[in-house]
């Protein structure tokens, strides 16, 4: 067994006949932050969603190739997608808490796993909120609607909700794109803390964010993986001309 948590081999994805991802191969290390950058429509979000099989929900999508998580091909036909998603959590671009209380949002995951004992739930809720660095802000408002919180807080509630299921990998699809700079900074700080325990994969169109938060960076363009390397190398000494052009803002 090697250190890579996620290994992707020759992954292609089609929407109908339209090829959206072309033969992507990459390895993602454990307990690191990996960032996907690229202009919009380049396939980075689509690729992210293949890692927990979220694209299954969309009609007309066909996927070829393999994605190994802990050396198990998640596109094998015997895979249990429901359990896969418990292991691979996801944070969405637009924060999407349920129209329930903060507590019920966090307890959603444990509850669907059959945990109903109040003391256990309380513990998980508190721990998850603390991990997401929002406990102090909401501990007095646990039973208020999550929708009454600010956008940045809602996004951290979503992160906490995802942590409550105890995932190993967290996929973040532009988690801060709809937030103000202060909330964004909080999320980035949180990512930095979370990588001690989790493997984090983040899609962002904000290059500074990728540079600040990630250990590795991959650049996508028109469904191709252009280059992937340690973040400081990508941003200082990229191997490909295209990468350099994108980093310096010449396209995209």
């Amino acid at each position: 067994m090697d250190d890579y948590k996620v290994k992707v081999k020759d992954l292609s994805l089609r929407y109908g006949t339209n090829l959206a991802l072309k033969n992507i191969s990459m390895d993602i290390p454990e307990k690191k932050v990996t960032a996907f950058i690229g202009p919009s429509g380049c396939g980075k979000s689509t690729f992210l969603r293949t890692l927990n099989r979220m694209n299954d929900l969309i009609d007309n999508v066909t996927i070829e190739g393999e994605v190994y998580i802990d050396n198990i091909n998640i596109y094998d036909k015997n895979i249990d997608v429901v359990n896969l998603r418990k292991k691979v959590g996801m944070i969405f671009q637009k924060s999407n808490p349920f129209a329930k209380s903060v507590y019920d949002n966090i307890a959603f995951g444990p509850r669907i796993n059959g945990i109903s004992q109040k003391s256990v739930l309380d513990e998980i809720v508190e721990r998850s909120l603390k991990q997401a660095a929002i406990w102090d802000e909401v501990k007095d408002r646990l039973f208020h609607s999550a929708l009454s919180l600010s956008g940045g807080q809602q996004q951290r509630i979503c992160i906490a909700r995802s942590l409550a299921v105890n995932p190993e990998i967290i996929l973040m699809d532009e988690p801060a794109s709809a937030l103000d700079p202060i909330s964004t900074a909080k999320i980035e700080e949180l990512i930095h803390e979370l990588k001690k325990e989790y493997t984090i994969i983040i899609v962002t169109h904000n290059m500074q964010q990728a540079a600040r938060t990630s250990d590795l960076t991959a650049l996508f363009y028109l469904g191709d993986l252009i280059e992937m390397n340690r973040t400081e190398i990508i941003f200082s000494n990229p191997a490909k001309k295209q990468t350099e052009d994108y980093i310096s803002g010449r396209f995209g």
Binding site: N52, M54, L57, V82, N83, R85, K86, G89, M90, F92, K94, N96, P97, F98, A99, F108, G109, I112, N113, C158, R161, S162, V165
Partner: peptide, 25 residues
């Protein structure tokens, strides 16, 4: 909204759990 369903599924809820806990409410 579609993202409510996705949020539930991404937490490892099954389709029926998603319907029962998100769609019906």
């Amino acid at each position: 909204p579609r993202d409510m369903r996705e949020a539930s599924l991404a937490l490892g809820a099954t389709k029926w759990q998603t319907i029962r806990k998100v769609v019906i409410p």
